[in-house]
Amino acid sequence: MAESEQTLRLYAFEPSYIAPIVFAVVIGISLIVHIFQNFYYRFWRTTFWMFWGGTVFTAGWIMRIFSSYDPSNKALYIAQTCLVLGGPPIYAAAEYNILGRLMSYLPMHAVFHPRRVIIVFVYLGALVESLTAAGAAKMAASKGLDISEYVLGGKLVSISLVLQAAVECVFVSFVATMHYRAARAHHLSRNVRALCFMLYGTSALVLFRCIFRAVEAFATQGVLTPEQCGSLCRLVETREWYIYVFEATPMAIYTIWLNVMHPGRYLPRNKFQYLDVDGTTERLGPGWVDRRSQWQTWADPFDLVKTIKGRPAHEKYWLQSERWPAAEGSFAQGTASNATRSLSGKLYRRVSMKPEV
């Protein structure tokens, strides 16, 4: 079969012209709102990944628009496949940063060193993203041409999806641990409760999307043409609405949810600001200080050895409230804001006794 004939089989259906436009507009608007809020709350360090994930995902649906009008164009097909698959793992990295900042805010309930959240989850997320991009590119480029490359690409995508689902499950367990500890200690203030439920919900959306993509990947493993499909394969390969219901919609809800409940509304921009043991006052502490050598922190990032022995290597500075000055306002009580001017018009003075690093 000539390549011009094979490229016509890139889609097993007649691609919609309208649906990718709708999702490109929805996710693009959400991206613009998120950029505005990042500047408004000056929260770029924590939620940069929402901007980057939104940029990639929006670009994916824009490429899908062009691809729907030129379905035999392999370059457009590869671009939209890689970008649409690559956006969600980047979105998930925003959750990991939010959890790290929540651990800094509630150090007494942190599962482990807040900065290790970035090391552990974001770098695992980078691995997921790399596997996804490599697998998607191989599958799209070899579709209808090279069975071995197509199968390899499918395996890489399958591995990345299983890994991302596993990471999300571990992530949710950490959020649940923080939630339980805060509730037991009467530290479950409105902002903490809102963030916990937001992280549960967004993680559920990522897992929902992962399950769909995993079913699709395993059902189409090694399948080059619709004729080779089984019943499940035909179900996900020949019906375009599946991708919009199980991929586009959950991730659109995800990004809108993080706009409605932007963490800049609920957590201090200054990561040294933490909730005192009284559950209302917020103080400016020294941050989490690990007294171990650098090689020990890399060998045992969770400080398991000393924690098991009952002698953790970090200082419990939150038990020495008298040493640390009270912050201006309290996010727990709703009397503080990261914005120069709150939505109600009341002016707040920014806490700047320690720079954010």
Results as ranks from 00 to 15, higher is better:
residue 277 V to R: 15
residue 62 I to V: 15
residue 95 E to F: 13
residue 340 T to V: 02
residue 214 A to M: 11
residue 117 V to Y: 11
residue 171 F to N: 01
residue 259 N to T: 02
residue 148 S to Y: 15
residue 174 F to K: 06
residue 343 L to Y: 13
residue 285 G to A: 04
residue 107 P to D: 10
residue 235 L to C: 00
residue 184 R to P: 00
residue 134 A to F: 10
residue 107 P to S: 13
residue 109 H to L: 00
residue 345 G to N: 03
residue 344 S to V: 10
residue 273 Q to G: 11
residue 274 Y to M: 10
residue 141 A to M: 06
residue 36 F to C: 02
residue 353 M to T: 07
residue 87 G to I: 04
residue 236 V to E: 09
residue 51 F to K: 03
residue 184 R to W: 06
residue 214 A to T: 10
residue 326 A to Y: 05
residue 288 W to S: 08
residue 28 G to N: 00
residue 166 A to G: 00
residue 134 A to H: 11
residue 40 Y to S: 04
residue 50 M to T: 12
residue 283 R to D: 08
residue 11 Y to R: 02
residue 38 N to K: 04
residue 127 L to K: 01
residue 70 D to W: 08
residue 179 H to K: 10
residue 308 I to L: 12
residue 79 A to S: 02
residue 201 G to A: 05
residue 295 W to N: 05
residue 285 G to R: 02
residue 163 L to S: 00
residue 133 A to P: 01
residue 216 E to I: 14
residue 59 A to M: 08
residue 330 S to A: 08
residue 134 A to T: 11
residue 40 Y to P: 01
residue 107 P to Q: 14
residue 188 L to Y: 02
residue 57 F to N: 11
residue 348 Y to A: 09
residue 167 V to S: 00
residue 306 K to T: 15
residue 162 V to C: 09
residue 161 L to D: 06
residue 186 H to T: 08
residue 151 V to S: 10
residue 167 V to I: 03
residue 179 H to D: 07
